[in-house]
Amino acid sequence: MALLKVRDLRLSFGGLKVLHDISFSVEKGAINSLIGPNGAGKTSLFNCLTGFYKPKGGSISLGGRPITGLPPHRITALGLARTFQNIRLFKEMTVLENAMSGQHCRSRHGIVSAILHLPAQRREEEAIRAAGMRWLDFVGIQQHAHRRAGGLSYGDQRRLELARALASAPELILLDEPAAGLNEREKLDLVHLIRRIRDETGVTVLLIEHDMGLVMQVSEKIVVFDYGQKIADGPPEAVRADPRVIEAYLGTEE
């Protein structure tokens, strides 16, 4: 069953067409990738999926429910979480507070019950805290829980972004260049972590990545973009052999 379905998605900024009639789908429980040269429109597509950009046409559905044009917070609440290409943590807050932020849309107590210190509100706070710690533990940075998020190493900041997104209990998680700036050893850990996300939590993964080695290693299906158009879609071996993909990445022989 397709968890995410994108049909004829179009996006333009003024006269500039960024995405031309993009269609693809992501199966439930899969690890898929979007690849393409710089400026191909990958991040723009992510921003459409997560509600940050409003597409000009086409439709997006998550688990059969249309999410086209909804605001970002509604889309997250419906089960689609994301990370950002340039890490966007709440740097001044603690690591744990960052991880707890994902739980906001899964909890409900507001100002009044906080002032009255209602038992149900205290229990909910404990549950939010416990969930934050659990996801920090999952990505392996629990020992840093009370440090300032901005003080973490680059690799750990990437992990924290993952923990924060996972804490929102998503069905599908979009990772925008999770390997950017990581060294070889950290990339290996990342591959392992991405597999664990799917295998241990059942969350479907869709990633944008430049690192071809990593993409080929981890994805079951790859969608290739160039100039805002989909040029290939299939398993890694087929995509690697596709002449149009080779052309997009390496150019043609004149």
Binding site: F52, P72, F90, E92, A114
Partner: peptide, 30 residues
């Protein structure tokens, strides 16, 4: 009242919005 709210779900949400509005929206905060 301030202390109670500062340490609650809504209080944290305000800090998230103050530090990074887009990241806050992306994580599910209206």
């Amino acid at each position: 009242v301030c202390l109670s709210v500062e340490r609650s779900r809504m209080g944290r949400a305000w800090f998230y919005v103050r530090y990074d509005e887009d990241a806050a929206a992306g994580i599910g905060i209206n």
